[in-house]
């Protein structure tokens, strides 16, 4: 399997506190990966580094076939390169309709001028409607997204992520605050997505991780503690000590 993203030897510190310490990580082109770890393990910071929100002090982050470094790129450039991110807290544009939210995320030329003259077309509308159907928000298309329930916002955010058509999805706690049925649906969307692209899921919920049925990376104090199948890592003594045992 070819490598899509390669993170090697990355460190970052905040005022002396090493949030990420010599972390290395790899993911292939169509792969599902779950990241688990206790609070403060650096999961979110790890995502911040990949998406350009936080600058690494040292190390390399290489992307794609051409092995471009992501460290020099801005958040928007990284997103356009094909990294999509779903935040832990649902962050949708609450003042705008579900349709507008999805349309904004749709993979298109993002330069100001082409957006200014973009006036919508049937093909795009159909794409948005298809996405809405996938995330179960067809009836809510014209509603303001601020009126949606918490779960629906999570869906919408996943929908926006899919609309971007990224090669790598970074998903932060997608199942938080969802009912069991909703989780089921989320799992299937993610598994489906992982068939054509890489998906990284950060999750606390072991049950959810088990259902994803994928390779697991355990982070602890900013570096990788263990990697392998869920059964493999849960039987690892180190992991039990720092995380599961407590």
């Amino acid at each position: 399997m070819k490598t899509l993203l390669e993170v090697s030897g990355v460190s970052v510190s905040f005022d002396g506190f090493k949030a990420i310490n010599n972390l290395s990580f790899q993911i292939g082109k169509a792969e599902m990966r779950a990241i688990i770890g206790p609070n403060g393990a650096g999961k979110t910071t790890f995502m911040d580094i990949i998406t350009g929100k936080t600058r690494a002090d040292e190390g390399r982050v290489l992307w794609g076939d051409k092995s471009v470094s992501l460290l020099k790129m801005s958040e928007a450039q990284i997103a356009r390169a094909g990294v999509g991110r779903k935040f832990q807290r649902p962050t949708v544009f609450e003042d705008q309709s579900v349709f507008a939210n999805l349309a904004m995320a749709l993979k298109k030329d993002r330069s100001p001028f082409s957006v200014l003259f973009y006036r919508g077309n049937t093909a795009d509308t159909e794409k948005v409607e298809a996405l809405a159907a996938e995330i179960g928000l067809t009836d809510q298309l014209s509603r303001k997204s601020g009126e949606l329930s918490h779960g629906q916002k999570q869906w919408l955010e996943i929908g926006m992520l899919l609309a971007q058509d990224p090669q790598l999805l970074l998903v932060d706690e997608p199942a938080a605050g969802m009912t069991p049925e909703e989780r089921e649906h989320t799992t299937s969307i993610l598994v489906e997505a992982a068939k054509t692209r890489a998906v990284v899921v950060v999750e606390h919920d072991m049950e959810f991780v088990r259902r994803l049925n994928c390779k697991v990376t355990v982070l602890h104090e900013g570096s990788v503690l263990a990697e392998g199948s869920l059964d493999h890592v849960t039987s690892n003594q180190d992991v039990i000590d720092v995380y599961l045992g407590r």
């Binding site: 958040e75 006036r119 971007q164």
Partner: peptide
């Protein structure tokens, strides 16, 4: 249009718009 949509997005959550790939 969509431009207005992006503008309001920037107003409400600049970082999110950036992560959608728009150069804010």
């Amino acid at each position: 249009g969509k431009f207005g949509s992006v503008l309001r997005g920037i107003r409400d959550d600049e970082a999110r718009v950036r992560f959608l790939g728009y150069s804010v």
